[in-house]
Amino acid sequence: MKQLGEGWNWRDLKLGDRFITFGRTLFEADLLNFVTLCGFSEELFTNKEYIATHAPMRGGHPVPGALVYSMAEGLVIPTTLQGTGLAFLSMGFDIKGPTYVGDTIHVEIEVTEIKPTSKDPMRALVRTTNLVKNQKGETVLIYTPLRMMQGR
């Protein structure tokens, strides 16, 4: 019996496959918890008066790109890699635009590389291009993880 929420099997993927996640709004509590946990004590993230006087043209309370990436992975992992992802090996990472408290993000995923490993035919290296988009459809972050995934 297949368990609900089980991730992709690399043998069921093909180059060019595309997927989209559900959305997730970034709340003030998310920002505060993240900057406290990670020590991101920069005033741009922790001081509303500083933002109002030094960065008023930016359009709101910005969040760190590392938080946006972490939230994106939180949308991707439970629906695509649960139980089938074996290792996160590397990634490219490019912030394309700002993200603010109150923005809602989702991830658009495209499979760009599948390479079975030579040592174990049950495993493959799978690279995806993950576009993180806000509620306006603007791409705010692109990352390209290379993961080891299991097969059947």
Rank of each mutant, 00 (worst) to 15 (best):
L86A: 09
L86G: 07
F88T: 06
F88L: 09
L89G: 01
L89M: 08
S90K: 09
S90A: 12
S90Y: 03
M91K: 08
G92K: 09
G92L: 01
F93C: 02
F93D: 00
F93P: 00
D94W: 04
D94H: 15
D94S: 13
I95A: 03
K96V: 05
K96G: 03
G97R: 03
G97Y: 04
G97V: 02
P98C: 04
P98Q: 10
P98V: 03
T99F: 00
T99M: 01
Y100C: 14
V101K: 03
G102S: 07
G102V: 04
D103M: 07
D103G: 04
T104V: 09
I105A: 08
H106D: 12
H106C: 13
H106K: 15
V107H: 14
E108H: 13
E108D: 15
E108Q: 15
E108C: 12
I109L: 11
I109V: 09
I109C: 06
E110R: 14
V111E: 05
T112W: 02
T112D: 04
E113R: 13
E113T: 07
E113C: 05
K115D: 00
P116H: 11
T117S: 06
S118D: 11
K119T: 15
K119P: 05
K119V: 12
D120F: 06
D120W: 08
P121H: 13
P121K: 15
P121V: 05
M122P: 06
M122T: 10
M122L: 09
R123M: 13
R123N: 13
R123I: 07
R123K: 15
A124D: 05
L125I: 06
L125K: 04
L125P: 01
V126N: 06
V126D: 04
R127L: 00
R127F: 01
R127K: 09
T128P: 02
T128G: 03
T128D: 02
T129F: 00
T129A: 05
T129W: 00
L131M: 11
L131F: 10
L131A: 13
K133D: 00
K133H: 00
K133I: 02
N134C: 05
Q135S: 05
